[in-house]
Design a protein around this nucleic acid. Structure first.
Lengths: 248, 248
DNA sequence: AATTTATTTGCAGTTTAATGCGTGTATTAT
DNA sequence: ATAATACACGCATTAAACTGCAAATAAATT
């Protein structure tokens, strides 16, 4: 068995089982464990697999359990601070889910009186702890991944609302493709929210600026305000300054 | 089992149950408690979990801290255990809020496949962590006291549902006055739930049996099953045994 | 085809990682 | 206050990983 085909075989096995032991492979292919180890190292070098003590794991396995760290937490706090300044007493506010929105919720001043609509459970929890904020939950099927309600009922409820402002956590934004996302249900929700709001505020860490995902939510011009942790005149945001978007 | 794999498993478990004991994990995975402790320390270092004496807690649910303080928790666990046995695969289940219902949610077996409708945020959080349970959130204004959605929209949504079973946390029950409560909105909700369910299961700690509040929810005869932490033949429940209510 | 060259493999010895156990010390519960 | 758990630390054991080297194999050259 040639080295190339052996490595192909290993990749196949790893992807199939999500994990593999060096010792098993060694037996199965009938080569020494050293050889397997060398293969695993090379494949790991090529980012095809994740090598661990004793064997290897598939990339997908790793991803599925690797919860997104909140290391951009500080950035998100800055964003939240800026976003909060836009909210005035008496407003009706629509919000999506996402960790940035949670930070926004935590940053709300105690004396702010406003009504928040959301289908995001974690966001609702946060809003709930604010004394002067009225919370309206948008009901429907709960998506376990995103911890937000999704579906037709949610969308038609959103359409019934006429909100002053919509705060949207953004996963990818790009001057060409606008706001994009990877989850069909979430895209529908966001589109409905945009239509139901007088003003759309997009929140994103700069890391996600100029990235693209598969599904389109809206064009850049549909956004009224863009908030990142950067200063408005940062060079990364230069391409957006020409548009009619307000950058904060 | 590889180390990474084990740690992924631990993260999964923690997120599912919101808390986990080192001793349980040790047994389940069949490694020494030292190993588990080392894992928990590393995961805690990585901010994936919150390590506490005896085990670990999920990050998402820091509310679990309050968990210990729940009044007569042990009784509620017994009640939850009994209630769970009534739920079969494929059922549509309506639930109210309340700490007893939370315990019910935690007691649900992992392999149970069912659809749960609720307006209670804490309950929804619990259901969400169960892999095979579909959660439908009933939307409306969020009552901060009871952490449940209340109002006309919630009620009309409930009326659209035809559930197999309704689990109702009971605040006061009495053979004369039936189930009573003190919150107008909650009473409306509960009445709607009763109407929309083939079977009504009332859950209550024995302390609340033979007590009364101001607002009537329903008569005792509208209940199908009554669950307390007591044995069915306990003298406290004697007055209910004559009726057609099943006592568990 | 034969020989050189380069690559790959296996092996021995050493190093490192992972785990379990025993002991003494914290922490929690009674 | 006392007993019962849970914890941390060091050490021993085992398995896995690395290192360098020689043998084996494949590829290239003449």
């Amino acid at each position: 068995m040639l080295k190339k085909e052996r490595q192909a075989f290993i990749i196949h096995k790893v992807n199939l089982h999500n994990k593999i032991l060096s010792s098993d492979l060694s037996q199965e292919i009938n080569v020494s464990e050293d050889t397997i180890r060398r293969d695993l190292n090379e494949l790991s070098e090529m980012k095809k697999i994740i090598k661990v003590h004793g064997g290897a794991l598939s990339k997908s396995f790793h991803n599925s359990f690797q919860h997104k760290n909140i290391y951009s937490l500080e950035h998100k706090k800055i964003i939240a601070q800026k976003a909060v300044s836009l909210i005035k007493d008496g407003m009706f506010v629509l919000t999506t889910g996402g960790t940035t929105i949670i930070e926004l919720a935590r940053a709300l001043p105690e004396n702010l009186q406003a009504t928040f609509f959301t289908g995001s459970l974690p966001a609702a929890f946060e809003y709930m702890h604010h004394p002067n904020i009225e919370v309206i939950i948008i009901g429907d099927r709960l998506s376990k991944n995103s911890q937000i309600t999704v579906g037709g009922a949610a969308i038609s409820k959103i359409r019934e609302i006429k909100a002053d402002m919509c705060f949207m956590g953004v996963n990818a934004i790009d001057i060409e493709n606008g706001i994009t996302d990877s989850d069909w249900d979430i895209v529908q929700l966001k589109q409905a929210m945009i239509e139901s709001s007088s003003k759309v505020v997009a929140l994103t860490i700069s890391e996600k600026v100029n990235t693209t995902m598969r599904l389109k939510v809206c064009n850049v011009k549909d956004i009224d305000v863009l908030i990142t942790e950067l200063k408005p005149d940062d060079s990364l945001l230069a391409s957006y300054t020409g548009t009619e978007i307000e950058i904060i």
